[in-house]
Design a protein around this nucleic acid. Structure first.
Lengths: 136, 136
DNA sequence: CTTGACCTTCCAGTTACTGGAAACCCTAGG
DNA sequence: CCTAGGGTTTCCAGTAACTGGAAGGTCAAG
């Protein structure tokens, strides 16, 4: 099958599939005309990548996960370890975003949002402030 | 003052300050020896940038915020609009991360994490699954 | 035989820096 | 006066993971 169909079936854009080939994640055969010829196994792999990426795993993680997938003698502990590390990163991102969100929301609430120039948001950037955490 | 001191006072690495100059966010004077000569106003601007970036505003947003800061006849509504849009993006990211987190956490909970190959995480990537949202 | 949809490669751009190399400048110590 | 160090300069390259676009080859339909 051509790249268009592989794209439709894996959920990845053709551009991305070409990129994945370039970095060695997939290795489709070639027709005599030079077109990539995807087998079922290639599509399966691409779908695997699509799902792992959708959960936020990096390409590096995906590479490791793929090789574990193909390793019949893998230990699920190895997979779990990768997933745990990723979960920790997600948690870190969420908490950083939540802190931002809190501060920002607070500032937005204090800003009149009218045609006058006074603005606590700009003030904050201009002069800094103690963390919002100062509850009493 | 030289870039080192400007860096110490603004909280930004020298590299970043040079980058900000390159993209036109700051424009420090130069000494006869070619060294950048930062005035108080430059440091103030750099600190502004550091704080806005810490809240996750893009460089583009920062550019807009800076020019509003310098505009005495600004309307706080314009600042607020930028902040609101950014807040919406943060919310979108948080909810996307939360969805990932939930799915991932669920899978991790189901994985034995021992030396056997069976692994719900890998299975999920290999065969997909309905969203976890299917409560009942 | 032409048209339009696909496909190919290659180059560039995105975001916001960061690392490193080669070389210049300045100051303090000997 | 020389040197050693630390700070500074510019420039080039790399990061993550694609994405857009140009120029051109291929294929099936009409």
């Amino acid at each position: 099958m051509n790249i268009g169909e592989a794209a439709a079936r894996s959920g990845l854009p053709p551009k991305t599939i070409r990129y994945y080939e370039e970095i060695g994640l997939v290795n489709p055969a070639r027709d005599t005309n030079g077109y990539r010829a995807f087998r079922e196994s290639d599509v399966h792999k691409l779908s695997f990548l699509e799902r792992a990426r959708a959960l936020g795993f990096t390409i590096g993680d995906c590479r490791a996960l793929l090789s574990l997938w193909e390793d019949d003698s893998r230990a699920s502990a190895d997979v779990k370890a990768i997933a745990r590390e990723h979960l920790a990163e997600i948690d870190a991102k969420i908490s950083s975003l939540r802190q931002m969100r809190k501060t920002l929301d607070d500032l937005i609430g204090k800003c009149a949002g009218d045609d006058r120039p006074e603005c606590p948001i700009i003030e904050r950037f201009a002069h800094g402030a103690e963390p919002v955490t100062e509850t009493r």
